[in-house]
């Protein structure tokens, strides 16, 4: 899966997907369908969605940190526009943000 969608460049705009994936996942709801930028590539890690079922030692996938603006997460955010959240997202949960994003 990692080969299909990565790698993303630093600063590239990405959309975090809202995959309808049952079971154990590490992408919280509050960032789904939100657009941010790639803050860094963190390395390749085993997929927690596999590991959670005891399937270890499989293919590693790319992990990125994505920077999101608080204002984009919560329209009524209390602080200034510059405030941000950074979060780790595996690359099958990302796609490039197109012009409309």
């Amino acid at each position: 899966m990692s080969l299909e969608r990565g790698p993303y460049a630093l600063g590239e705009r990405v959309r975090i997907l809202d995959l309808d994936k049952p079971g154990h996942v590490r992408t919280p709801m509050y960032v789904r369908e939100k657009v941010g930028v790639i803050e860094r590539y963190c390395g390749d890690f085993e997929n927690p969605e596999e590991r959670a079922y005891g399937r270890v030692g499989r293919e590693r996938i790319r992990l990125y940190r994505v920077r999101l603006r608080q204002r984009d997460l919560w329209p009524d955010y209390e602080g200034p526009d510059k405030d941000t959240v950074e979060i780790e997202i595996y690359d099958h949960w990302l796609r490039p943000a197109s012009g409309g994003d």
């Binding site: 590490r26 992408t27 919280p28 963190c42 390395g43 890690f45 927690p48 992990l63 940190r65 608080q70 209390e78 602080g79 200034p80 510059k82 405030d83 941000t84 959240v85 950074e86 979060i87 780790e88 997202i89 595996y90």
Partner: peptide, 28 residues
């Protein structure tokens, strides 16, 4: 609402300073 949380902890971050929250949700 990180700024409100920080105020409750006694830390008032000026609006000129970015508050950056890191969600330690995966491997780092």
């Amino acid at each position: 609402e990180p700024r409100k949380v920080l105020r409750e902890f006694g830390l008032d971050i000026p609006e000129t300073v970015e508050v950056r929250v890191h969600d330690s949700n995966a491997d780092l």
